[in-house]
Amino acid sequence: MARYAMVIDTVKCVGCMDCVVACKTENNVPEGFNRDWIAYETIGKYPNLHMEIRSERCNHCDNPPCVYTCPTGASHISDIGGIVLVDYDKCIGCKACIAACPYDARFIHPDGYATKCTFCEHRVVQGLDPACVSTCPTHCMYFGDLEDPNSEVSKLLQSRKYHVLNPETGTKPQVYYLI
């Protein structure tokens, strides 16, 4: 079975938020909500500064507390490459999954259910890249199957240094940041 993951090259990312806008239109994310967002982190003292820019979203964790905590099974690990999804018709809006996510990747849709990044599963099943990946003007985002050693994402993780977000929480995030 596939293990879908996203690899984002922070060296190329310019923090333009194109990925956020594309997600909004592709997935009709309601006004005032974001499925993905940008983190600009700067260290040092002017003019000796170093900056990392990250496009962040649900990490589709291999060990997802949001799923474990869900009392109804609405939050689940789908059979499509381990993408973590919410079945809106099962969701009671108890918000346990939101509390359980160390990345605050989830929110309650105005219609009452919990939602978040879906890795554009509706595009992936058609063989397309997620909307954010396919619009990124710097081509700094990569999506693919880590089970396949020849996939671009696998190759990148073999050849480049990278980190994930808050590994200490034990969630095994599947969004990787090249440095």
Binding site: V20, A39, Y40
Partner: peptide, 8 residues
Amino acid sequence: ITRHNHLI
């Protein structure tokens, strides 16, 4: 961080 999700 450019995020502003209601309740989050």
